[in-house]
């Protein structure tokens, strides 16, 4: 943190609106990043309609739905955490942040079991079972692993971020006057949520 100190000693530049703008721009880049993958999905879905249809049936819609509910709830608790800190209720804010992390953890556990079940059935990139299937199914599961994997990575990063914010809130670095960092983590978390909202129907619901 000494780097910060060097600068702070010279002048303190604080511009919450600027920071917010920066976060939104960053979220745009994340959207474009996933957008690239949605593009790949769209192209292959169009090319291999029948095989995508068959492959999608093999995914467990129940776990998918459960995870969707978990993530949506966690977005709510994240918002509540921010509202709480704005009302200067430190304890409540920390409580909701911890709940959010807990829900995110639950999401990852579900995801773990889902992946493991697939892998036990021999469906993973490069496996014999998968290579025996048609090209469209190989691509479907390839996309499934890559896209949910990258999304899972974002969930993990989000968990770490919110964890850091919880620490900041405890220390008082994040407080009712200066909660832009928490807000940033919240926005990021909603992005993770939104991407899932698109992944869920594309892989689980549309068969």
């Amino acid at each position: 943190m000494s780097v910060v100190a060097e600068h702070i000693s010279e002048h303190v530049h604080r511009d919450d609106l600027g920071s917010r703008m920066g976060i939104w721009l960053f979220l745009f880049t994340e959207l474009v990043l996933f957008g690239g993958m949605f593009l790949v999905y769209a192209v292959y879905r169009f090319t291999y309609q029948q095989e995508f249809h068959v492959a999608a049936k093999e995914l467990n819609t129940l776990i998918g739905t459960l995870n969707t509910l978990i993530l949506l709830t966690s977005s709510l608790t994240m918002v509540l955490a921010i509202v709480a800190i704005r009302k200067d209720n430190k304890f409540l804010s920390i409580f909701f942040q911890v709940i959010t992390i807990f829900l995110a953890f639950g999401f990852m556990v579900n995801k773990y079991f889902e992946w493991m079940a697939k892998i036990h059935h021999g469906i993973y990139p490069g496996s014999e079972t998968l290579l025996a299937k048609g090209n469209g199914e190989i691509l479907f599961f390839g996309l499934y692993y890559v896209m949910t994997g990258l999304h899972g990575l974002h969930v993990l990063i989000g968990m770490v971020l919110i964890g850091v914010m919880t620490r900041f809130t405890m220390k008082g670095t994040v407080n009712s006057d200066k909660y832009i960092h928490l807000e940033a983590a919240g926005l990021y978390w909603h992005l993770v949520d939104i991407i899932w909202i698109f992944l869920f129907p594309l892989f689980y619901l549309i068969t």
Binding site: V40, V43, Y48, P125, G126, L131, L139, G142, V146
Partner: peptide, 16 residues
């Protein structure tokens, strides 16, 4: 991992 997303041998499209 040989996912196949672009690999023509697994159905992927190099032009994409």
């Amino acid at each position: 991992f040989g996912v196949g997303l672009f690999d023509p041998a697994l159905g992927g499209d190099p032009v994409l």
